[in-house]
C-alpha cells in the first residue's frame, strides 16, 4: 500500500489560509488501511479544525466526504458537487489523489492534509515499513524476495557494506541489514550460490532517473480515446 502520515494541524491551518468553506476529502483505499486519510481520519480532522478555528475566533464551514479512490476520475466525479462548493479542498489521499483533484477540477484549490511516505506494509499493529521503491525493474527474483533497493540504505546490488553490524544497518539499530536478510534467506533456501554471480550496475532509467514514467497498454485502451 501507499502509506502516509497526517500533517500537523498547524500546517493544515496555514494551508487553508482564509478560506471560508473547507472540504476535507478522505480516500477509501491505501490511506484508509494505514489510518492516515480514510473517512474516520477525515472526521477527526473536521472536528479538530472546527474546534481550532472556533478557538481562533474565525470559525469556518468545514464539511467532509470520502471517495473510494481519489486517483480515479470515476470516483472523483462523485464528489463534484461538494468540490465546486468549497473554497479549498484538504485531500487526505496520497500525493496522487491531490494531483488527481487538481487535474480533474481545474478551478479548485486543493492542499494536502497528509505527507505521502512510502510503499510498504504493516508489520504489526501501528507499525508500517517500507518494502518497495517502485524502481521499475524488479530484482526480487534474485534477492530471495527481499528488496535491497528499498530496504538497503545504499540500495546496494552486491551487499552488504561495511556498515552492516550484527544484522543491523549502521543508519539505525531498528533497521535490519537488507543484505544480511538476503544472505540468511538464500542460505535457508539452499541457494546461497546465487550470490556468486555479481550483479551489474542497475539501469536506473526505469526508475525516477528516467523522468516521470508512463505505462501504455494498447490492448486496454478504448478506440475512441486513441491519440
Amino acid at each position: 500500500m501507499i502509506t502516509a502520515e497526517r500533517k500537523p494541524l498547524e500546517e493544515v491551518k496555514d494551508l487553508i489560509g482564509e478560506a471560508r468553506n473547507v472540504l476535507v476529502m478522505g480516500c477509501g483505499t491505501c490511506v484508509t488501511v494505514c489510518f492516515a486519510g480514510g473517512s474516520r481520519e477525515a472526521a477527526e480532522l473536521v472536528v479538530s479544525l472546527r474546534m481550532a478555528t472556533r478557538l481562533a475566533g474565525a470559525p469556518r464551514e468545514i464539511t467532509e466526504t470520502t471517495v473510494q479512490r481519489q486517483c480515479e476520475w470515476e470516483y472523483l466525479d462523485e464528489a463534484r458537487a461538494d468540490v465546486e462548493q468549497a473554497d479549498v479542498i484538504v485531500s487526505l489521499a496520497c500525493g496522487i489523489g491531490v494531483q488527481a483533484i487538481a487535474e480533474r477540477f481545474p478551478d479548485a484549490r486543493v492542499v494536502p492534509g497528509v505527507n505521502t511516505t512510502f510503499l510498504g506494509m504493516p508489520t504489526e499493529h501501528g507499525i508500517w515499513e517500507e518494502r518497495c521503491a517502485a524502481c521499475g525493474e524488479c530484482i526480487l527474483g534474485i534477492t530471495a524476495g527481499i528488496c535491497p533497493i528499498a530496504r538497503c540504505a545504499k540500495s546496494l546490488l552486491n551487499g552488504p557494506c561495511g556498515g552492516s553490524e550484527a544484522g543491523h544497518c549502521e543508519v539505525s539499530p531498528d533497521t535490519p541489514c537488507a543484505w544480511q536478510l538476503i544472505h540468511d534467506r538464500l542460505q535457508r533456501l539452499g541457494v546461497l550460490d546465487v550470490l556468486m554471480q555479481p550483479q551489474p550496475p542497475k539501469n536506473w532509467k526505469s526508475s525516477r532517473d528516467g523522468g516521470p514514467r508512463r505505462i501504455v497498454r494498447d490492448d486496454l485502451r478504448l478506440a475512441g480515446e486513441q491519440e
Binding site: 500537523p8 494541524l9 498547524e10 477527526e44 479538530s48 474546534m51 481550532a52 478557538l55 481562533a56
Partner: peptide
Amino acid sequence: GLLGEIGL
C-alpha cells in the same frame, strides 16, 4: 496531543 494542537 490532539487537544494541544487544537488549542485546548
